[in-house]
Amino acid sequence: MTVPRFWRKLKHRYNLLGTHCTTCETYYYPPRKICPKCRRRGEIEPHRFKGEGKLLTYTIIQNPPEKITAHAPYVLGIVELDEGPRLTSQIICSPEEAEIGMRVRSVFRKIGEESAEGMIYYGTKFVKL
């Protein structure tokens, strides 16, 4: 991912900054400009998530994509935040520790880098609560 593209949503990655539709009271992460439920009737405002939730499902990746800062095998999961939205993130635990329904909380970690000379991508991962 190029530098401007990463930078554009950097705050949202660092701080789980998403959106909230005040019309239907639905929370979104990643942020959306249009509420998929209300569309034009939706009123969108920024919302910062607390960063706690549960693990909905997960896998153990053996072949990491390039530029990703993780040593295989690593746990990748879909986290459902307590406010409702779901996101994909790495779960920092051993493969044996991962469990569907496990409570997790967000932490600040390095998620990847462009190259040894390039930009470092920081963002949010999750640890077992």
């Binding site: 990643p30 072949n63 994909t88």
Partner: peptide, 23 residues
Amino acid sequence: EWEGIMGATFPGLYAMIARLHMH
């Protein structure tokens, strides 16, 4: 921006479906 950069691969996405289907 929200799956790939977080370390998701295609087998990984379908594996997460498989895990929940099995569960």
